[in-house]
Design a protein around this nucleic acid. Structure first.
Lengths: 203, 203
DNA sequence: TTTTGGTTTAACCAATTGATTTAACTAATA
DNA sequence: TATTAGTTAAATCAATTGGTTAAACCAAAA
């Protein structure tokens, strides 16, 4: 029954997502995934053949989910400053809902970089620069943005957004001693990071 | 012979450092460590009893090495701006020499947060704030720094410095398409990040 | 009702892996 | 030289783990 199959496959996929996100590729156990899915371990291999196949499926889905969130900013008709505010608001909100995702993706790519070569073909600084010029030619004189500094600026923006979640384990412990709530911190960070960047790039 | 013992133990420790940094706790193999150390696998257990003991020793050493780098900034007699410049210069230089360290530490802590509870007892925002007031009371009026925003500012500074190395795998691949050299990028980042932060916090 | 195709499970397998055991080795000491 | 205490390695173990097999199950079709 294809209805049922879709269901079982999804159940496995979701269980695998949780386990892989939690333990990583090398730390995850097929039995653990089977238990969480409430099925026999052999079914995992019936639907996904091997652990690597299953991981590949989960990783690709999650990596897409992650990197998709970077693109739609330039589809909006907003001022440059509002685009920055929009990005931090949306992106941090997304990570609040998927707090383990950044650390998982970063770690797995560090262990196997070619895993995302295909996905990152979209990252195009030249195209990004022309897009910025097209959309913000009139207001660009107000900011310290050049094609040369674009990689620095872009990685800076991503750093401010992603790092707190990628290093959640450390930050939570560090905050714990002072009663700083991580969720409150990330909520405030949406505006703090945006205004911080705007202030920094304004001439 | 205690001389020889110290040597063997160090050889094991260094081999374990390389392997754990590369593969993580769950991905590392005792046989791999033994091979790299050029000794029999049983010797690992003779000197460190278990894999967890060995990992604990390596991790503690590396974590200290990492977090030590945050403290000595306030021992220098510098202006606030020069302290920021000093931090990024020193810290990024350190990570250029240990590029895998940030990703390793972050990942292992995410998998087991209580592992650094002891080490992070030093992190004290209240004390940091009083130190800043003590050392920079006259020039503080020039900057947008308050006790409330200190956690945001500190995590921002750390983000800008650490993230490029923690996410080295992603960034290298993303840069690869445009002939941007990662080492050149990190070298430029020492000054870019410093001036970025100074600009952002200046009233 | 029987057949048939896909689905699920229990049992099992082979390889890996952390760990132990036992014996060989080595150098200082008596 | 014989002894002894510590060091190293070969062989082995027991548990884990990814993967396979064969049979049971189940619903739709004939």
């Amino acid at each position: 029954m294809s209805e049922n199959e879709k269901l079982t496959e999804e159940i496995i996929f979701e269980a695998a997502t949780v386990v892989f996100e939690e333990d990583g590729l090398s730390g995850a156990r097929m039995q653990n995934i089977a238990d969480r899915a409430g099925i026999n371990k052999a079914l995992l291999h019936y639907y996904f053949r091997t652990k690597d196949h299953l991981f590949e499926a989960v990783f690709t889905k999650l990596a897409q989910k992650m990197f998709m969130k970077f693109t739609p900013i330039f589809e909006k008709n907003l001022s440059l400053e509002d685009k920055i505010r929009f990005f931090f608001r949306e992106h941090i909100t997304f990570m609040q809902q998927n707090p383990k995702l950044p650390g998982f993706i970063i770690n797995e790519i560090n262990h196997n970089p070619q895993r995302i070569k295909k996905l990152l073909r979209n990252v195009d600084f030249r195209k990004l620069w022309t897009t910025i010029i097209e959309q913000h030619s009139e207001e660009l004189y107000k900011y310290n943005i050049t094609e040369e500094t674009l990689p620095q600026i872009m990685t800076t923006i991503v750093s401010l957004s992603v790092f707190p979640f990628a290093a959640k384990g450390i930050i939570e412990v560090a905050f714990d001693n002072f009663g700083i709530d991580f969720d409150k911190y990330t909520e405030e960070r949406k505006t703090f990071a945006a205004e911080f960047v705007i202030k920094a790039i304004t001439k």
